[in-house]
Simulated scan of single mutants.
Amino acid sequence: MTAAKTSAPLSTMARAAIFICLAIAVTGCASTKRDNDNLTTGSIPKVSSAPLDGMNAVELAATEKAVGGAYIRDPKNRDVGMRYATVLGMTGKHAQALAVMQQVAIAHPTDRSVLAAYGKAQAGAGQLEQALATIGRAQTPDHPDWRLISAEGAVLDQLGRADEARQKYRMALQTQPNEPSIMSNLGMSYVLSGDLKTAETYMRDAAKQPAADSRVRQNLALVIGLQGRFSEAEQIARQELSQSQADANVTYLRSMMSQQNTWQKLAANDKARSATN
Rank of each mutant, 00 (worst) to 15 (best):
R161F: 02
G92S: 11
M55D: 03
I106Q: 14
L52P: 00
I44Q: 06
L98S: 07
H108W: 13
T91G: 05
D195F: 06
R238L: 07
A66D: 11
G42K: 00
T6A: 14
P144Q: 09
N269A: 05
A8R: 15
E129W: 13
S150A: 10
V100F: 12
V80E: 02
A165T: 09
Q235Y: 12
N219W: 08
S244E: 09
G54V: 00
L186S: 07
M13P: 01
D79Q: 07
D205C: 13
M203V: 02
Y118L: 02
L52N: 04
I182Y: 01
S181N: 14
A221T: 12
A267C: 12
M1I: 06
A8G: 10
L253F: 05
A206D: 13
A211T: 07
K33C: 00
Q259I: 05
L241G: 00
M82P: 07
T134W: 04
M171T: 12
A23W: 15
S150H: 03
N38P: 09
R254M: 13
L266E: 02
G42D: 03
A62Q: 10
A162Y: 06
G119S: 12
M256I: 14
Y84V: 09
M1F: 08
S184Y: 09
A165R: 00
L196D: 14
A165I: 06
A267G: 08
N261A: 10
V67P: 01
N277I: 06
A248N: 02
N178T: 07
A125I: 06
Y118M: 04
N36T: 07
R83D: 07
T27M: 15
S150N: 08
G119H: 07
K65P: 13
E59H: 04
Y84G: 03
V80I: 14
Q96V: 15
L10Q: 00
V250L: 09
M188W: 14
R254C: 12
P144F: 08
V191D: 12
Q176I: 03
P75G: 08
L98D: 07
I24R: 04
V104C: 11
Q218W: 15
Q122L: 12
L39F: 15
A66P: 10
Q130D: 07
G81R: 05
A16G: 15
A151S: 01
R83G: 01
S49K: 04
L173M: 01
A62T: 10
